[in-house]
Amino acid sequence: MPDQLMASKISYILSIESSCDDTSCAVLKNDQVLSNVIAGQKVHQQYGGVVPELASRAHQSNIVPVVHTALAQANIDKKQLTAIAFTRGPGLMGSLLVGSSFAKSLSLALDIPLIEVHHMQAHILAHFIDEGQEKPEFPFLALTISGGHTQIVKVTDHHEMEVIGTTMDDAVGEAFDKTGKMLGLDYPAGPIIDSLARKGNPHAFSFPIPKAPNLDYSFSGFKTSVLYFIQKQVKENLDFIKENLEDICASVQYTIIEILFQKLEKAVNKTGIKSVAIGGGVSANSGIRERLLSKKEKGWKVFIPPFQYTTDNAAMIGISGYYKFLQKDFAGLEVTATARISM
């Protein structure tokens, strides 16, 4: 249980997120966000995906101005800070090292506690940022969906989480982006497919649902089936993609949502937990949000994060850090970034 004395005090936590290609810094006053600054990296668009070396270089250029801007927007002097939280992993090693090194240096210079944060736990805990909304009660299930992860997590406490289903190969975000690349769409393709899907017929084309065991996911076979389908159709009609783009996107998105929710429904039935939250960059998808909201008719209690907390951001790192701060769960300066780390 959190230390009641700690909980009654005001804390100012500066948090840093640098797991992939967004450099972000936030300042939280307890569980309220005072600032949440994000610097993106457009350099990766021309390559159709994130280039790790370019990402780490951009983080080095962005981190100082992002931190200064976050403090200025929060109207907080660094001497008022109570602790520094940072993403330890999972993520790209070079990117993580930039954020973790800066966080450790700042913690040492200010002589305040350092808090390591698990990136995927933070996506889930974004629901606990205080914006006047109802927060999930324990236990609940979380569907974490992003470019690198697809997981069903049983959450019993702010930092007690069990992965009960995960992808066996590719993540759902990668399925969106790779499909977009096949269709000639810009990177990242997920939001573009979502937009085009709203205008198309989701039943125009049929794609198979992968047969992954238990509560696990698989998207590699789905991507291959889409590739073969497109190759076959284009061979017969060179203008097939152009003439059917909206219907293709709608059908692809419909199938991906089916894949996600067949396993999520199975998890609800297996655990008996009908309180369900989503998190991660792909949780911004309108079709996924609509499908989850429709589950209210089945008695589910659903939680959808605000758009600004779906993609990678430091506010979610800060709220995770806040609950660790209450438990005095601090890291030593010997802590190192970890590209892969279990929940």
Rank of each mutant, 00 (worst) to 15 (best):
I10G: 00
I10L: 13
S11C: 01
I16V: 09
S18R: 13
T23Q: 06
A26G: 02
A26T: 02
G40F: 04
K42S: 11
V43Y: 07
H44C: 02
Q45Y: 09
Y47I: 01
N62I: 00
I63K: 04
P65A: 00
Q80L: 03
L81A: 01
S95F: 08
S101C: 06
I112H: 14
I115T: 03
V117N: 03
H118D: 12
H119V: 07
A126S: 15
I129A: 02
E131L: 09
E131I: 08
E131T: 10
G132S: 03
L143G: 14
G148M: 12
I152T: 03
V163S: 08
A171R: 08
E174G: 06
D177R: 08
L183R: 02
A189D: 08
P191S: 06
S195K: 14
L196P: 07
K199C: 10
N214A: 13
Y217Q: 04
F219Q: 13
G221S: 12
S225P: 06
V226W: 13
I230T: 15
I230P: 12
Q233E: 15
E243V: 07
E246T: 12
L260M: 15
Q262G: 12
A267W: 10
K270F: 00
G280P: 03
V282L: 04
L292S: 06
L292K: 14
P306Q: 10
D312R: 13
A315W: 04
S320A: 12
